[in-house]
Design a protein around this nucleic acid. Structure first.
Lengths: 204, 204
DNA sequence: GTCTATAAAACGATAGAC
DNA sequence: GTCTATCGTTTTATAGAC
């Protein structure tokens, strides 16, 4: 990983930061270019589709980064109960540390553009879907039935995104802790059920 | 309830609709005034603080409307388990009917302004808090301990807001149904525990 | 690929007549 | 309280030199 970043990457990074903090519509291209120390022309060189194409690229990049973060907690054949608990606790610490600015890199943009840009809505959906796939896969590895695993993934997603919203509005990390306990309980129940079914099968 | 609405109310209503659909920053004052059939001067007459004051008023009004909606499902001394289930199912039907445009009247604005306008962040937090109070109150009436009732309220909030986000991004009502089942289970477990404790106390 | 200048439109906000 | 005209700024986007 090099310290020297390309102009395209600097624009992408600056846009991500600003979109997440103040939203997509409220962020001007000029402020993005100022933050990335790039000239106006470079933006349209790398993103000929203008602001919308830049938005799609930000959603794709942010989605990939967060997917990797999820994968770091939910490792293959790991403890999904502990992973759930740790993930929410990590999020609670992080959101407080960044003064309630850095939460989900997709959510704000997704809500802003869901009904006005089909390109960006699809990019948001694809990012979310990639997280759900990781979670679903890890749950099935823990012995939880496929359909229930997918439901659990959606539950976890909703819990964390809803908690991000409430945390940012109230400037408190507590909602993430409450949502985390609930999500962890849900995963624990599903896993214990899977373990019981597994041992029943083994002994029968 | 009169059909004739005041200029102030028309501006407020039009702004609410547009903010919810396309966001706060992306909505120009001109389009709000066009939709509410009001002149430019009226806006600054009723909202001297400009767009920010209008935003706060929208958050307060939207918060009150949604609080009333929650109260219609969660009636005093009613069945909290059925109320939870019905509320999520009602939301799932509504979001699909409005083509995934009308979900939460606060969430998008809240995320956009949480880090840039302290006035609007506080208005968002107050709206959310008013919903949590209704939910918490109804849970305690069902015999659930005060602290657990508050947690349950936060859980329900996170589940529905997270589901709103995923529904809008994927244009599917399914996340609301999945989150609704999980939330309903959580409420049922808490209520059954409360009932068991109540009957134990009665019989001892 | 980099950079500047600028176009054309939309923005929030204000002044002042009625 | 209503309405219009307009200010000054910022917006996205483009043209064209280097």
């Amino acid at each position: 990983m090099s310290v020297i970043t390309s102009t395209r990457d600097r624009i992408l990074f600056a846009a991500s930061e600003l979109f997440r903090r103040q939203g997509f519509a409220a962020t001007g291209l000029k402020s993005i270019l100022a933050a990335s120390d790039a000239p106006y022309g470079s933006l349209y060189h790398f993103f000929p589709g203008g602001k919308e194409e830049l938005g799609v690229a930000v959603l794709e990049a942010g989605g990939a980064v967060y997917r990797e973060l999820v994968a770091q907690f939910f490792v293959p054949d790991g403890n999904v109960v502990k992973a759930t608990s740790d993930f929410f606790e990590g999020a609670a610490v992080m959101i407080a540390e960044t003064d309630y600015a850095d939460a989900c890199p997709i959510a704000t943009i997704a809500l802003e553009t869901a009904s006005t840009s089909e390109l960006m809505r699809r990019a948001s959906a694809a990012a979310f879907e990639s997280w759900l796939e990781v979670l679903t896969h890890r749950m099935t590895e823990a012995g939880i039935p496929r359909r229930r695993s997918r439901e659990l993934a959606v539950e976890l997603f909703c819990a964390i995104e809803g908690a991000f919203l409430l945390c940012r509005a109230t400037r408190s990390p507590e909602p993430l802790r409450v949502a985390g306990r609930a999500a962890t309980d849900s995963v624990r129940q599903a896993r214990d059920k899977a373990l019981a079914r597994g041992s029943t099968r083994r002994t029968s």
